[in-house]
Design a protein around this nucleic acid. Structure first.
Length: 344
DNA sequence: ATTCCACAGGAAAAGATGGTCA
DNA sequence: TGACCATCTTTTCCTGTGGAAT
């Protein structure tokens, strides 16, 4: 059924970008005249793919070097080093302890031989670092990606003004017919055989995910996987329903696996309880800490440092919490996503 | 309405980490 | 090898917030 699994991977970019023609001309136009463009839009509407395709387009006009960096959770130095590592003219392995001055010099050298574009993906927290300011000092073009344009612009603090407030490229959710096209394209490319899924089914999927392309693509993957397991030649409507949870679990499990020990422990504690207050959570952590950290390189951490871990767990869609500072309750997003650490 | 309380999260200091260089 | 250094992480200290109690 699924002949080419990577077509359904989250970061897959070997596919044509559909229904973004207007935004694409806009971004090309702006890149020709300024050295900073902000791309804003909700999760899963193809901001990353859009940026990649924009780089391709630009590369067709003139030769450019580029770096694409995921800035989530990175410090100023971390972003700069990642840029340096990703540039063709930069070093492949930049030491964490390399002085920022030295990184700056190397970036200078790596970017001056030809036009350079830097994509700062997952850039919501960038304004809290100096990374944007540092990069603007160099002769590079920045494409920053964020979920919330207003918040990003208002928190950005760069001396001498910056080019980002001269207009933002906004990528919205797709309409049903547009997303149906997109899903059809994926199906054709991923399944290698016609009629695995009907036009009507694709429309229903597109409608169901409210224009969020990533969700639609993952739902399609889940449906195809279930259909395969059930020995179906084509996707049945029941496969689509049954595949939904599986699709989300796949993404969350990958997210969880990528996190370090402290996050794993905290996730395990919340998972055990289902929902837990901050107070109870800290009590439980203190109870199990000694045993859980036995034989691991990491040491248990204090309460303040634990609080620091939750934004990432939320960002990765593993935990949910909201409400006022006191009486906050932490909940697992999907109880089926098992922790990777055993609690006593 | 005012005071109290618990907790989130900011800032700065301290500690850990992982590198360079003599 | 060991002294030293820059950066990142954690701790310490603290302020702000919203609900609950008075």
């Amino acid at each position: 059924m699924i002949a080419d699994p990577q077509v359904f991977d989250d970061g897959y970019d070997g596919i044509e970008l559909l229904h973004r023609g207007g935004e694409m001309s806009e971004v090309l136009e702006r890149i020709a005249t300024t050295d900073g463009v902000l791309i804003a839009g909700p999760s899963g509407v193809g901001k990353t793919l859009f940026a990649r395709k924009a780089i391709d387009e630009i590369g067709r006009i003139e030769p450019v070097d580029h770096a694409h960096v995921n800035c989530l959770g990175k410090t100023t130095g971390g972003v700069l080093r990642a840029v340096l590592e990703d540039l063709p003219a930069g070093s492949d392995d930049v030491a964490q302890t390399m002085a920022t001055d030295a990184v700056r010099d190397e970036l200078q050298a790596a970017t001056e031989r030809r036009e350079t574009i830097v994509v700062l993906d997952e850039g919501d927290d960038l304004p809290q670092t100096d990374a944007v300011g540092e990069l603007l000092e160099l002769d590079v073009t920045i494409i920053a990606i964020t979920h919330d344009k207003m918040r990003w612009l208002s928190r950005l603090d760069v001396a001498d003004g910056h080019p980002f407030d001269r207009g933002t490229i906004s990528l919205g959710r797709y309409g049903v017919s547009q997303l149906t096209d997109i899903l059809e394209r994926r199906a054709r490319q991923g399944f290698h055989q016609p009629d695995v899924v009907s036009q009507g089914q694709l429309e229903e999927l597109a409608d169901d995910v409210a224009g969020v392309a990533r969700n639609g693509i993952q739902r399609l993957w889940g449906a195809a996987t279930v259909a395969r397991d059930r020995g179906h030649v084509r996707i049945h409507d029941e496969d689509i329903d049954a595949g939904e949870e599986r699709a989300w679990r796949r993404i969350r499990e990958l997210n969880l696996a990528s996190l370090p020990t402290h996050h794993q422990v905290l996730y395990a504690i919340v998972h055990e309880a289902g929902a837990i207050s901050g107070e109870r959570l800290h009590e439980r952590y203190d109870e199990v800490a000694d045993e859980v950290y036995q034989g691991r390189p990491a040491q248990p951490i204090g309460e303040r440092a634990r609080r620091e871990k939750f934004p990432k767990l939320e960002e990765y869609d593993l935990l949910e919490y909201s409400g006022p500072t006191s009486n906050r309750v932490y909940e697992v997003a999907d109880a089926e996503v098992e922790p990777r650490i055993e609690l006593p």
